[in-house]
């Protein structure tokens, strides 16, 4: 397999996705099949070929850096999963994170 269970676990941790052991096995298998297929690209000689990351050819699209009033504050706040005193509640960032 192109990707081992151990590698897959590491990737899942980086991607912040909790997986059950049977899922780890299934993903390692199906992703290996896909990665093996990608090897077809090694047939192509790309020496000296530039990368394409966009197709419009537009460069340095800028606008004035002006502040604008947000007219949807109430609606944005209404989407928040947990609120207290009009503020978003989240677990502490530096708690229990030693192992990461």
């Amino acid at each position: 397999m192109s990707i081992s269970i151990e590698e897959l676990k590491k990737i899942a941790q980086l991607a912040r996705i909790k997986l059950a052991p049977d899922e780890e096995k299934r993903y390692a298998e199906t992703i290996s099949v896909v990665l093996d297929y990608m090897k077809i690209l090694n047939e192509v000689d790309t020496s000296g070929v530039e990368q394409t990351s966009q197709v419009t050819g537009l460069e340095d699209v800028v606008r004035a850096d002006e502040s604008r009033d947000c007219k949807i504050i109430k609606e944005l706040l209404a989407q928040m999963p947990q609120m207290e005193n009009n503020e978003l509640v989240v677990p502490g960032v530096f708690e229990n994170q030693a192992d990461l």
Binding site: K18, G92, E95, Q97
Partner: peptide
Amino acid sequence: MDGIRYGVRQKGKDLYDLYASSRA
């Protein structure tokens, strides 16, 4: 899509767990 600012948030014992469970 992390369950923090909008969408469905799952409970987690810490921040990592909250992310990983919400996405799972």
